[in-house]
């Protein structure tokens, strides 16, 4: 469980986050949704201890993220931000291998290699594993990053807009992979999503944010509600029930 207590962050005089009190239960996918500038990514970044908090406390699996050593946290929570640019020329397998760093400190054992192979195969990257990242398409590269954070084998995985720059087919595959990862490997995955219909289809819980505050947190079925969604996005949204589940219409 991730617990946020009275979390505040003052970005600038106009933009601030909080106070946020939130409990994210274990298991499944939790989707953070809300309009642009609601603070979803900021909140996620703070949970992943990449950004300090000004006030309050965040606990992941009972460990306070400000007092626990970063290298210990790296074994229970991993985070992937959306912009990942670097010039270092790494192969897919080398990148995924870095996910094992918290456990192996760079000395990869046979077991590490097995784990790396497992997640490379899980994301269908086996044929690409010796290719350099800069030779891959955007969708393939995104899968390689996700394979890396999964190979870290943390109970909690935080992903900031993993569908950014992916087309429909890649997005659907990515969400399916994440759902499978949550179920097969018993992970708790928290994602920032822009499209509420992906959240509706794949997430167990939804957390709706607006103006730096959490407005609603609950099971996806509860949040997929005309009134709630219309209020959050300030756009008329109608939720319809389809044979495939609930669907939000806003066009």
């Amino acid at each position: 469980m991730i617990t946020l207590k009275d979390v505040n962050k003052n970005y600038s005089s106009e933009v601030s986050i909080g106070p946020v009190d939130l409990e994210i239960p274990r298991g499944g996918i939790t989707a953070l949704v809300g309009p642009n500038g609601a603070g979803k990514s900021t909140l996620l970044t703070m949970m992943g201890r990449l950004l300090g908090i000004d006030q309050g406390a965040i606990e992941i699996a009972g460990m306070d993220i400000t007092t626990t050593k970063s290298k210990d946290l790296a074994k229970i929570v991993s985070i992937l931000k959306q912009e990942n640019h670097f010039m270092t020329k790494l192969t897919v397998r080398q990148l995924v291998g870095f996910g094992r760093f918290p456990h192996s400190k760079g000395r990869l054992t046979a077991e590490d290699e097995e784990i790396i192979s497992r997640y490379i195969d899980f994301l269908h990257l086996a044929e690409l594993e010796s290719r350099y990242l800069d030779e891959l398409s955007g969708g393939q590269r995104q899968r390689a990053y996700v394979a890396m954070v999964l190979a870290q084998e943390t109970e909690y995985v935080l992903l900031d807009e993993p569908l950014n720059n992916l087309d429909i087919s890649h997005s659907v595959h990515m969400m399916q992979h994440l759902k499978d990862a949550a179920e097969q490997f018993n992970r708790t995955i928290i994602v920032v999503l822009h499209d509420i219909n992906y959240a509706a289809r794949y997430a167990r819980y939804m957390c709706a944010m607006k103006n730096g505050k959490v407005i609603h947190m609950g099971r996806t079925e509860e949040l997929m509600n005309n009134q709630i969604l219309t209020d959050i996005f300030e756009t008329p949204i109608e939720v319809i029930s389809t044979p495939q589940g609930l669907l939000a219409c806003y066009h």
Binding site: G48, S70, F86, F101
Partner: peptide, 21 residues
């Protein structure tokens, strides 16, 4: 320090994620 230096090269967020200062 080879691995740590490579990780630092991947950026602050990448390093922090795997627990490298």
């Amino acid at each position: 320090l080879a691995d740590r230096l490579t990780l630092a090269g991947l950026g602050e967020e990448f390093s922090t994620n795997v627990g490298v200062n």
